[in-house]
Write a protein that binds this DNA or RNA. Sequence first.
DNA 1: CTTGACATATAGGAGTCCTAGGTATATAAG
DNA 2: CTTATATACCTAGGACTCCTATATGTCAAG
Lengths: 111, 111
Amino acid sequence: MEQEKVEVLKGTLDMLILKVVAFGPIHGYAISQRIQQISRDFFQVPEGSLYPALHRLEDRGWLQAKWQESETGREAKFYTLTRAGRKRLSAEMVNWERLSEAVALILSTAE
Amino acid sequence: MEQEKVEVLKGTLDMLILKVVAFGPIHGYAISQRIQQISRDFFQVPEGSLYPALHRLEDRGWLQAKWQESETGREAKFYTLTRAGRKRLSAEMVNWERLSEAVALILSTAE
DNA sequence: CTTGACATATAGGAGTCCTAGGTATATAAG
DNA sequence: CTTATATACCTAGGACTCCTATATGTCAAG
């Protein structure tokens, strides 16, 4: 059984991560699992996409990281949304809304 | 009045072009205008995105090009969907549907 | 005769995604 | 005990798409 490669649309991953982190402090590995679960297995975020994205978001001041003990008793990096991150998420969601509407306009046009 | 830069989501442009060409033979310049019109000015496809995309789609056998006289009496390159292009468009639309649903699942989750 | 719309084209940089590889711990299976 | 699996992090490098900027040329309007 081949699993089809479903690449996260470039530019969308950041928004999804921010949204998941908005629920409360969570570590990277769990973020990727959450995204997969909530999307009913549609998105499978590979680690080579996940960790660079997390560092990027931290660099930009949208996420804050802190080492803490995970549920399993090991150290993990827990991320929290900063105030700027909350604003950014909000902006990205508005943009996504507009963008998907614009795409829908084109896709739904009849000849 | 600054116009906000709205980058077409990477990977979406091809689908939009195929969809517009599906309406019938049309040249590049007109494709970009059509996309802008139908999306109510949301998308403005710059030429540096448009022409490389058209060549890409032609290389892959999804579009076919033919020089013809345009509405204004000048020569322009008219594109048509190939059979493979039609299949491709259909697949991309299905994928977009699934993808936007998956994004919606995540964005609509409450804490 | 110059501005603006039409019409095409490409080089090159920026950015994001993925594959593939690596490190390390804990636990369950054998 | 040893091996496999799940947890948890990381990065290099290639592929790809997007954009800005630049270039060419025609035609109509002013």
